[in-house]
């Protein structure tokens, strides 16, 4: 099992979801058994909440009500006529085409290469085959009772998938997280 000495430096990374899956699981399991680490995680939560509340309160004090009133008259005074806009567009089109042609081809090629390169790791389809929509598996546990030795909740941030990991000695058939998890 992971010791406090190993888990403690990883707690901030765990809190930010920046650990690898094995480490996430090991730290989560450790924190279910270690009151000090659990306490430190709660402290991190409180700190984040305090910072978030402070930033929000500062943002609320910014008065942006007069911004548009100042910008709109200047825009109106500088708006060109339709003829001017058409002439400017035509001049820009004629002058820029020789550069834009190859540039456009380059961008298209880069986009094609990116699609080909990223395809195997791209977003996965929904479980019911409705294309490539983003998966949202977010779940909220309202209550839990367990007779297992310990359980841990870990969430995968990309799809918000929550996993309940069960460790149990009595059943004799439940997986344990080994020290390898901290590698």
């Amino acid at each position: 099992m992971t010791s406090c000495r190993e888990a403690r430096p990883l707690l901030p990374l765990f809190f930010d979801g920046e650990l690898e899956a094995r480490q996430m699981r090991a730290v989560a399991l450790h924190s279910t058994r270690c009151s000090e680490c659990e306490h430190e995680l709660r402290e991190l939560e409180h700190l984040q909440e305090a910072i978030s509340a402070h930033v929000s309160s500062l943002v609320d004090t910014i008065d942006v009500s007069q911004v548009w009133a100042g910008v709109a008259p200047r825009l109106a005074s500088r708006a060109p006529s339709f003829g001017e806009r058409w002439g400017a567009w035509w001049e820009e089109y004629r002058a820029g085409w020789r550069v834009r042609g190859p540039a456009f081809a380059g961008v298209a090629l880069a986009a094609l290469l990116a699609v080909v390169a990223l395809r195997p790791d791209g977003p996965t389809p929904t479980p019911h085959g409705k294309g490539f929509a983003k998966i949202d598996n977010s779940a909220k546990l309202d209550s839990m009772q367990t007779t297992a030795d310990s359980v841990a909740l870990v969430t995968e941030p990309e799809t918000n998938t929550t996993m309940l990991w069960i460790m149990d000695d009595a059943a004799g058939g439940i997986e344990h997280v080994s020290d390898e998890a901290m590698e």
Binding site: N137, A139, L141, S143, M144, Q145, T147, A148, D168
Partner: peptide, 10 residues
């Protein structure tokens, strides 16, 4: 009963 839980799932 190994785990008994109540959850709200999307």
């Amino acid at each position: 009963p190994l785990v008994n839980t109540m959850l709200s799932l999307k």
